[in-house]
Amino acid sequence: MTAGMNAPPDESSPGLPPADYEMLCDFLRERTGLSFTEAKRYFVDRRVAARMAAVGAATVREYMRLLRFQASGEELQLLVNLMTVNETYFFREKYQFDCLVNSALDEVVRGRPPGARVRIWSAGCSTGEEPYSIAIMLLEHWRRVDEFEIELYASDIDSSVLARAQEGIYEERSLQGLPAHLRAKYFRRVGSDPDRWRIIEELRESIDFSHVNIVDPEQLRAFRGIDVIFCRNLLIYFDDLGRREAASMFYDALAPNGFVCLGHSESMSRISSLFVPRRFPDAILYQKPVQGGLP
């Protein structure tokens, strides 16, 4: 990914001076939670150099002034979009969705009257494969899906992937995990292109997409009473403290006894003591205890 029409920076250029690198990474960590160590230099240097060239900033200081003080925040957003890793695909780590429809949701709705709301949030949804997979799993496999009003939220800090999520057009590569009959049921070909499929409008319309940075407490205030949060393969890009803060945000967003689902390589026990691990037949989820006690 290089920046627009600008030539990529010279591969042999020495990159940012260490003090500038540190200043910029501190700033990014503070704003996004994303943590870039020295080991990520190859990733950071090229992207920052490309953006600096695009806006004509001669020094990192000058560029940082733009990032900090530009009223529209546009440059910061462009840089953030370049700094995120957006890898995702349909039915990724499907056993966790199995866990949702086979165990977790039945527990969530226990004691709720028919017609009650159930809220599920994909935090860090990238191009949308995760929330659409959840929607399809619910419709296909949760026996009680028609008894409740299910609200699906999906958000990301990266404005460009979010736009693509809302558009809902996918290529073969990201659809591979999806059985053919589900593709036939929930997707339509785009024009005559054999490789592009668009998710049906009904599903696109059923998900509330929003531009949300999970480390921003003000933005998180819109999320309360959530029953299940999927935050998979996002916190791996944070440092320990950032993960702990994110866990704390999720705690507030969840309803009592609500669940967090992390990526397969991530463990809440190493992040925060706020949640209780729950081992279901398909997967481990992390549960918010009712105040002051165990679930």
Partner: peptide
């Protein structure tokens, strides 16, 4: 369909939590 369009912030925010 059982999926409904979401309405965020359905729960009122306590005044003491307000930004001010």
């Amino acid at each position: 369909m059982a999926l409904v369009k979401a309405k965020k912030n359905a729960a009122p925010v306590p005044a003491a939590e307000a930004p001010g």
